[in-house]
């Protein structure tokens, strides 16, 4: 008597046999694969060039370029303030030490 599991396995084997590709590959299969790779590279390169052109066009506007440089200045100033606060502690400490221990380096 056949069990249900054996029956399922038979059905699966049959399906796998049917799904297996038969026959040779088409004659221009390799060329087609390369063509698809090249097309995909061309699309990527095109997107990059498009982005570059758009970014340059954005900066071509005087107000945009001024805003970009102003943002760089602002961020630099904020960074400078943070650094200045840290350095000021060293300066203040050095001043106190110079006042109270003049003999030492």
């Amino acid at each position: 008597m056949r069990t249900s599991a054996e029956s399922d396995e038979q059905t699966l084997r049959h399906l796998v046999r049917q799904a297996r590709p038969s026959g040779a590959l088409p004659p221009d299969f390799a060329a087609a694969v390369w063509r698809r790779i090249e097309q995909s590279e061309a699309i990527t390169k095109g997107r990059w060039q498009q982005w570059l052109t758009q970014a340059a066009a954005f900066l071509w506007e005087p107000r945009h370029v001024i805003a970009t440089f102003a943002a760089a200045l602002f961020l630099g100033a904020v960074t400078g303030l943070i650094q200045g606060w840290q350095q000021s502690e060293d300066l203040a400490r050095q001043r106190y030490l110079t006042a109270v221990r003049p003999l030492l380096p």
């Binding site: 760089a72 630099g76 200045g84 350095q87 000021s88 300066l91 203040a92 001043r95 006042a99």
Partner: peptide, 30 residues
Amino acid sequence: VAVGLFFASAQLVARWSAHRFSNPHDDLEW
């Protein structure tokens, strides 16, 4: 230019604010 502006302003502001925040007229600020 943007990177140059960033570093120049950071350097200038750091120097100015370090002197200012350290309160140069008071030895006891630290």
